[in-house]
Write a protein that binds this DNA or RNA. Structure first.
Length: 203
DNA sequence: GGTAAGATCAGC
DNA sequence: CTGATCTTACCT
C-alpha cells in the first residue's frame, strides 16, 4: 500500500524517503540522505544526470517499472549504488540512497566494511551504504515493499529535510535535488563533480 | 570491435 | 588530486 506513496515525482518521493527504515541483510538503518533523479526528455521530469535519460536500456529498465522496486548499478567499476524507483509504472524516476544511520546489526554492517570505520561512517555514501547493508547487483529489480524481499523499506512520518545540489553529477549540477536530515552525522560531504559545468550555468 | 566517461572512495 | 577497476552506451 505504501508503494503508492512513491508513485509520485522524484522530489516528493525523495522527501518521503527521509527517515524511512531500510532493512538490509542482518542490518537495519534509517535513511538520512537521498538524491532525486528524473528521466528522459520526453517524460515529466527531464534530467540529463539520470541513467534513464536516454530511454530504457537493459540497465535502466527497472526505473521504467513500478514504484517501490530497487535499482542497483555498478559505479566506477567498483561500488554498488541503490535507488528506489518512483513515479507511475512506465514513467522513469528514482531516488538514490546516499546515506543511512545503522540502528541495528551494527556488527554485521561493520564486518562488511574495512576495519576501523567510525560508526557514523558505516553507511555514509551510496557505495558504502550498499556494502554495509549487503545490497548487491543481484538485488536489482526486487520489490522493496514485499515482506519476503531480502532488502525492504518502510516509510515513516514525513520529516523536515534540508536541500542542496546533487553530489558528483556533471549534468544539471546546480539542481537542488539532494535532501538530508539536518544535523545528522551520517550525511556525506558535498563534492561537486570535477566534470560539472561552472556553477550557475543552466541545466 | 573500440573507447570514453562515469549518480564513488580512500589515500597522499 | 589521483588511481583503482569495469560496465555501459555510443561510435565507426
Amino acid at each position: 500500500m505504501s508503494a503508492a506513496q512513491l508513485a509520485v515525482d522524484p522530489v516528493t518521493a525523495a522527501r518521503r524517503l527521509l527517515g524511512a527504515t531500510l532493512y538490509g541483510r542482518d542490518v537495519v538503518a534509517t535513511v538520512v540522505e537521498v538524491e532525486a533523479y528524473g528521466g528522459p526528455p520526453s517524460g515529466p521530469w527531464p534530467d540529463a544526470a539520470a541513467h534513464s535519460f536516454r530511454g530504457p536500456t537493459p540497465r535502466s529498465a527497472v526505473m521504467f517499472g513500478p514504484a517501490g522496486h530497487l535499482y542497483t548499478y555498478r559505479s566506477h567499476g567498483i561500488h554498488v549504488c541503490a535507488n528506489v524507483v518512483c513515479g507511475a509504472d512506465g514513467v522513469a524516476g528514482a531516488v538514490l540512497l546516499r546515506a543511512a544511520r545503522v540502528i541495528d546489526g551494527c556488527g554485521a554492517a561493520q564486518g562488511r566494511r574495512r576495519a576501523g570505520v567510525a560508526p557514523a561512517a558505516i553507511a555514509r555514501g551510496p557505495g558504502n551504504l550498499c556494502e554495509a547493508l549487503g545490497i548487491t547487483l543481484a538485488d536489482n529489480g526486487i520489490d522493496l515493499m514485499d515482506r519476503r524481499s531480502p532488502v525492504r523499506l518502510e516509510l515513516n512520518a514525513l520529516q523536515e529535510g534540508a536541500a542542496g545540489p546533487r553530489v558528483g553529477v556533471s549534468q544539471a549540477a546546480d539542481r537542488p535535488w539532494r535532501f538530508w536530515l539536518a544535523d545528522t552525522a551520517e550525511v556525506s560531504a558535498y563534492r561537486r563533480s570535477p566534470r560539472a559545468a561552472a556553477p550557475g550555468d543552466s541545466d
